[in-house]
Write a protein that binds this DNA or RNA. Structure first.
Length: 163
DNA sequence: GCCAACGTTGGC
DNA sequence: GCCAACGTTGGC
């Protein structure tokens, strides 16, 4: 089983939005990047675990956990001329873009902010936070996963008050 | 709103 | 196949 980080802009679709859906599940579609497509096609499998990350948010960071409820299948929005993700060059016999189904499993006790992730030595290598990394789906190692969960369960570090 | 990073497109 | 132009992402 592999582990992943999925990004979403909460103004478009937040973890709370997912949590509120029937079965806490949705189709994760609209992904239009070839590297991401290849991850979905070649590596993401049903049952894989996912960190749900809020980008362009305040604060940015990991807010919840999900699992892959259904692995890659043709993203129907690529064939929908009314949809922003419409791709006129994609053919039904050979779909270019893939979607998965994502199911929320747990809300973190507190958000793991980007600042906190960057400040953590064990999370320095997290693909999603590398400079210039813009992929909306990136791999997470077992060690990184464990560290995020460990920190989420720990009380937040706050600047020490002057006495 | 700015801008750096970087993927995609299309002319040649 | 090169590469400039353009679009998007996403932190700040």
């Amino acid at each position: 089983m592999k582990r992943w980080l999925f990004k979403s802009e909460p103004s478009a679709f937040s973890f709370d939005d997912l949590w509120a859906l029937k079965g806490r599940k949705t189709r994760w579609d609209g992904l239009r990047n070839y590297q991401v497509r290849n991850f979905l096609r070649d590596e993401v499998r049903a049952g894989d675990e996912v960190l749900f990350y809020h980008s362009s948010a305040d604060p940015t960071g990991v807010v919840g956990l999900c699992r892959i409820a259904r692995e890659a299948y043709a993203d129907p929005t690529q064939f929908d001329a009314e949809h922003a993700g419409y791709d006129p060059k994609s053919e039904r016999a050979d779909p270019r873009w893939l979607a998965v189904d994502l199911q929320a499993t747990r809300r973190l006790e507190r958000a793991m902010t980007l600042a906190e992730i960057k400040a953590n030595l064990r999370l320095k290598g997290l693909r999603a936070v590398q400079p210039g990394s813009r992929l909306s789906v990136t791999p997470v190692t077992d060690e990184e996963w464990a560290e995020v969960l460990r920190l989420a369960a720990a009380p937040p570090k706050s600047p020490r008050k002057r006495s």
